[in-house]
Design a protein around this nucleic acid. Structure first.
Lengths: 332, 332
DNA sequence: TTGAAAGCGCTAACAG
DNA sequence: CTGTTAGCGCTTTCAA
């Protein structure tokens, strides 16, 4: 059995209160006793039971994170950044991947409540938005990641998705493309915003919005490939595609390659997120970058400060940036 | 404040013991009372406090996972698979990324102890192996991931790394390569094993082992690129490179491309892990696959059963498999 | 500077 | 079938 505070106290010949004080470095204790207690703790390999501590009101120093898919490099990178930032602040993460499965979402949220995490970061667009509000009101601070406007009254940090969609599409129109398709993710708030930017760019370029050119696909390689096939089978296929994330974009690249359609000469494609994938493909993927590191930092600090005091509702929006590589080219 | 079992009991006009029983579905309770209590729980949005429960001896249904780098697609995929399997068994994960930083490793291990996770999976080769033994003996079940033989007396699941290294190298020798380099990861047990397989394959092919051809680099794109540069600067550069993981392999591919060295015609390269990256590059990367899904399942079940009964020490070794794509070619 | 004791929310005998 | 009660390990007044 693991040693408890009682074991340490007994060994050291002091009371548990004293041990507690040295553990937490609180109150006044004599140098002598302090040293002795510390020695005993080492000897017994004592680790305070976080539960017992939490029960009496201490924080658990844990942050819950809900993301749709850890295997998507974008979210893996997000998770890593969050982990780094949290660790700097002395917090650890409970990372949960939901696969956009609403049952899992609910399970995990309840888990967070039961485990008394100090707050949570929601990077999935939950199927049940009411759950989020409830969570935030009744239980713990919440920050939304990448879904700025969904819940107007909740702290959120994201890129300016609309702007991102606009940048991407404008890049394509500037290259002379007229039939530009878009592939969105299902249920993702960010995709909706990016679509708005897409429309705006189209309009500015004097192009008309064609519903046939918008498709929805799961954020996987095969999702992108499937969407691609639907596009090429059209009577009038697009000459450029804006995929709402890199994985989708690369899915179409691969399928295009299989179909012997050359990128970017015959088809331009632009992604979003600037994940490691984008730098690695051939041709390297033109994409839109998010300042993940800064965003992560902001998420953590926002979460941690909003737990102290609700200082008005906070929405942080970061600027996306075009990363021009070689998967897009002038229409010829 | 969140409702406690007392609130529910009061509202329902019963004792806390009764509520506890319905929560845990234990003991005998009248249909009437049961219904009533359930209704009240819903109404109050009651979630039992996991800490209080854990304090009285109940399991936390949590598994700790330590991996070196979440941003490496291999580990991200591992984490995702583990998450899936754990979820099926009603467990959740506490994922920690250490960056091979020994201070972090220790912090996280202590965290696991304090948070009373039910067991942990170690996918990093910890700098302090004694810590692992201590953890396993004094505190909780441990399973080693990808480091089968490190601690002979600990449950472990991994691919047959030596075999993997052998397969990879043999593939190269069969293509006629005579100067074959290897890039290892620092501090990784698996790399050491793969090196053994490499040596064995060399020997079988009648080639001599040349220490100059073995290099160590961090598992990043730049790590791979750096190693590549050192190789090409040699008087007698290798004609093929076996990188101990895909990220490294792709790092060298990219740098080779920059140096206008054509792959596979001028240089063959083979990776390890068969991550999403391997399928996405151009040329697609020849690599060695691990059956991640099955391995993850084994890790979870091993961990969970070994917590019940120590039934002898368990080592599970899975077979690696060559995935022949287009980054390797006959020496000409 | 130290210790006694109450209480955090829950479970598990044990009584009724 | 239901309730009483004694802890689980720790923090925190409050006295000494």
């Amino acid at each position: 059995m693991q040693p408890t505070i009682y074991d340490v106290a007994k060994q050291a010949g002091v009371s548990i209160a004293t041990v507690s004080k040295v553990v937490n470095n609180k109150g006044r204790i004599g140098e002598q006793t302090k040293k002795k207690v510390i020695a005993i703790m080492k000897e017994l390999n004592y680790q305070p039971n976080a539960f017992a501590a939490a029960l009496t009101g201490k924080s658990t120093q844990t942050i819950g994170v809900i993301i749709p898919d850890l295997a998507n490099p974008y979210f893996a990178e997000l998770a890593k950044c969050l982990e780094d930032e949290a660790h700097k602040m002395g917090f650890s993460l409970m990372i949960c991947s939901t696969d956009n499965n609403s049952e899992k979402e609910e399970t995990y949220i309840n888990l967070f409540i039961r485990k008394k995490v100090d707050g949570c970061i929601l990077a999935s667009t939950l199927s049940n938005p009411q759950l989020v509000t409830e969570l935030a009101i009744q239980y713990m601070p919440v920050v939304l990641a990448g879904q700025a406007i969904l819940e107007k009254d909740l702290p959120a940090v994201s890129v300016h998705d609309q702007q991102g969609g606009y940048i991407a599409t404008t890049h394509l129109t500037a290259l002379g493309h007229q039939r530009i398709a878009i592939i969105m993710e299902p249920k993702a708030f960010s995709s909706l915003e990016r679509l708005k930017g897409y429309k705006k760019a189209l309009k500015e370029a004097g192009l008309i919005y064609d519903e046939n050119l918008v498709m929805t696909a799961d954020a996987t390689l095969t999702g992108g490939a499937d969407a691609f096939r639907l596009f090429v089978d059209m009577e009038q296929p697009p000459t450029a595609i804006f995929a709402c994330n890199d994985v989708l974009a690369i899915g179409v690249c691969q399928e295009a390659h299989r179909a012997s359609i050359h990128i970017p000469d015959e088809l331009s494609i632009i992604g979003f997120d600037n994940t490691i994938l984008a730098s690695v493909t051939s041709p390297p993927l033109t994409t839109v970058a998010q300042p993940l590191r800064e965003m992560s930092r902001q998420m953590i600090t926002t979460l941690l400060t909003s737990s102290n005091e609700k200082r008005g509702n906070q929405q942080f929006v970061f600027e996306p940036q075009l990363v021009n590589r070689q998967s897009t080219a002038k229409l010829n």
